[in-house]
Amino acid sequence: MNFSSYDKEFQGKRALVTGGTQGMGLAIVRRLAGAGAKVLTTARNIPSDYHIPNVHFVQADITKPEGTKAIVDAVKEKLGGIDILINMVGGSNSPAGGALALTDEHWLEELNMNLLGSVRLDRSLLPIMLEQGKGVIIHVSSIQRTLPLYESTLAYAAAKAALATYSKGLSNEFAPQGIRVNAIAPGFIQTEAANRLIDRLAVTAGSREAALNQLMDSLGGIPFGRPGLPEEVAELAAFLASDRAASIHGSEYVIDGGTIPTV
């Protein structure tokens, strides 16, 4: 793919990407910074080797209010404001075993990581966008909001469904004031974490190819024939963050190779 015509489209833009040290988050950071944006990213732990031009890092836990404060302070100090906010952080630490295996603590952890962290950050940074009369917010949800995997990630799926609904409501409220809010719903994306899972499954499956097919089958299949790549998600995020998507408000874009079987 040749995106050279867009290599400076984010020149002068200030972007925050949460969870941008690996996987889809890292790909988005690289895509925005490579097109001229000044980027701040976050993670719970300090990466051992993280040196990307025009990219700043702040150590913060987005699931905690004090983490939100640290991020907002860093936005003001390192970026001097914000034009693009991409809420990337998400995931699941809940055990397998279905709904009855989930305690209140599991539910609260999933809600904090996949919904409330974004809510707190949006609430803290929206006033800056409103003052300047423009801004972009992107929430990263999941196709699990439509296809919940109840065995192990039910709380995650429910939190992502809430995130999508919240995102739509936020767009309806702030679109008239120049703020664009949209969402991206990835399916199976072959990140570093996914590759580690494939390696583990390959021990019993017999090969990495068999393990990958096993994972795709667990989703009901991927008509496209392979998982998505982090860079493909990053390209979608870049489009939605750019002026090319000026009239797109309150939408959710699925990027899953055709996994969801309905329209």
Results as ranks from 00 to 15, higher is better:
104 D>R: 05
83 D>V: 05
63 T>Y: 00
117 G>I: 14
60 A>K: 10
78 K>P: 00
71 I>D: 04
109 E>I: 14
102 L>G: 01
65 P>D: 01
90 G>S: 04
102 L>M: 07
76 K>A: 14
73 D>V: 15
66 E>R: 06
82 I>Q: 11
96 A>D: 15
65 P>C: 05
84 I>A: 12
81 G>S: 01
85 L>A: 02
102 L>N: 02
61 D>N: 07
73 D>S: 15
71 I>V: 15
117 G>K: 07
70 A>L: 04
80 G>W: 03
106 H>A: 08
86 I>T: 08
85 L>S: 02
94 S>R: 04
110 E>F: 00
74 A>T: 14
107 W>H: 05
68 T>M: 11
110 E>V: 03
58 V>Y: 00
77 E>H: 03
58 V>F: 04
78 K>L: 13
58 V>Q: 00
91 G>A: 10
84 I>K: 05
100 L>V: 15
110 E>Q: 01
89 V>A: 04
79 L>D: 01
58 V>E: 02
80 G>N: 09
63 T>V: 01
60 A>V: 07
78 K>Y: 05
72 V>K: 04
67 G>D: 12
93 N>E: 13
98 G>N: 04
65 P>I: 09
56 H>E: 10
94 S>V: 08
86 I>R: 01
110 E>D: 03
94 S>M: 07
76 K>E: 14
84 I>V: 12
57 F>I: 05
110 E>A: 10
89 V>C: 00
59 Q>F: 08
102 L>Y: 05
96 A>Q: 15
71 I>Q: 03
106 H>V: 11
66 E>N: 11
60 A>T: 12
93 N>R: 14
89 V>P: 01
85 L>H: 03
84 I>E: 08
87 N>E: 13
